[in-house]
């Protein structure tokens, strides 16, 4: 037996799960896909005294496209289901680029989008996507509900704005403006490993292919996903030529402070971030152009 003892409760409804969480607070954890929580419990890095299993809450899973302004994804939606949902991938093409980089098929069969974002690993792809796409997180407790923009949700290493009595229930991704192209790329040492650095780019053009908006977010190079959209100022109003893209990439390299790890020095991470910024912006620009 690897994990320390705990009390297990399979929640029978969202209300049940939330009332248990408000009762036990920080001593309790929600069990979603378990693909981060169980390994940390097996190492005894985490020793929750109560596990609230939310896997039975089917209403928490699924993609809702009924609202034209937002694509709404339930927190319990598994990577597996997103990967196989062609309509969703067309609406949110950054996911088509990013999902195959997350771990391995067996882990994607269990892992959930809500568990991923609540866990808030800064090397993970999806927090960077949430920042790049300006997602809104719907957070619920027994007594209230609030929406938090991704820019305020990730507060530090493995730390989010979710309170001890709250659950992330839904993530809303704004529908893309016309003539928008996106691209996510990362570098990892082995297939499925966490990224040494990754970049998500979103480029929007006007009718004459001048750039009107840039979103740029990085994973793996800080304690939270890094919003580097400000560096995109070099591109606004331009035709996204190589020189302008190079200027953005250089500024991105100045904006980040990667810490290095066993696989890469900080300099190498910074180098990769610059290369990926250039490549993802070029690709996103090309893709946006197809919609002109």
């Amino acid at each position: 037996m690897k994990p320390a003892p705990f009390k297990y409760v399979a929640a029978s409804s969202l209300d049940h799960a939330l009332s248990l969480k408000s009762e036990y607070g920080d001593d309790a954890r929600f069990l979603a896909g378990g693909q981060s929580l169980i390994p940390t419990m097996n190492f005894r890095l985490a020793r929750p005294s109560v596990l609230i299993d939310i896997n039975g809450l089917k209403d928490l899973a699924g993609v809702d496209r009924s609202d034209t302004a937002y694509i709404r994804v339930g927190a319990l939606t598994r990577y597996r289901d997103l990967e196989r949902d062609g309509d969703f991938l067309r609406c949110c093409p950054l996911f088509a680029d990013a999902l195959p980089h997350i771990a391995h098929p067996q882990i994607r069969n269990r892992g959930t989008i809500g568990g991923n974002l609540s866990h808030a690993d800064p090397a993970s792809e999806l927090p960077a996507l949430a920042v790049a796409m300006r997602a809104r997180m719907r957070i619920k407790s027994s007594t209230r509900q609030r929406d938090v923009p991704a820019s305020e949700f990730f507060m530090g290493l493995l730390t989010t704005d979710i309170g001890s009595d709250e659950m992330l229930v839904e993530i809303a991704y704004p529908a893309m403006a016309p003539r928008t192209g996106t691209c996510f790329q990362e570098v990892a040492r082995r297939r499925g490993d966490f990224a040494l650095a990754g970049v998500a780019a979103v480029v929007t053009l006007d009718e004459v292919r001048r750039c009107t908006e840039i979103r740029l977010a990085l994973c793996g190079v800080g304690e939270t996903p890094v919003d580097a959209s400000a560096a995109g100022a070099h591109l606004i109003g331009t035709d996204c030529n190589d020189e302008a893209i190079g200027a953005v990439a250089a500024e991105v390299q100045d904006m980040i402070y990667p810490s290095g790890n066993v696989h890469a020095t900080p300099d190498y991470q910074r180098h990769i971030a610059g290369v990926l910024a250039r490549r993802t912006l070029s690709a996103a620009f090309q893709r946006a152009g197809h919609g002109v």
Binding site: Y8, L31, G34, I38, N42, L51, Q106, I107, N109
Partner: peptide
């Protein structure tokens, strides 16, 4: 790796009760 309802999963990352 085993199959849970036909889907490949890590059995070391699930609890038996699940």
């Amino acid at each position: 790796t085993i199959l849970l309802d036909g889907v490949a999963v890590r059995s070391c990352l699930m609890l038996a009760v699940q």
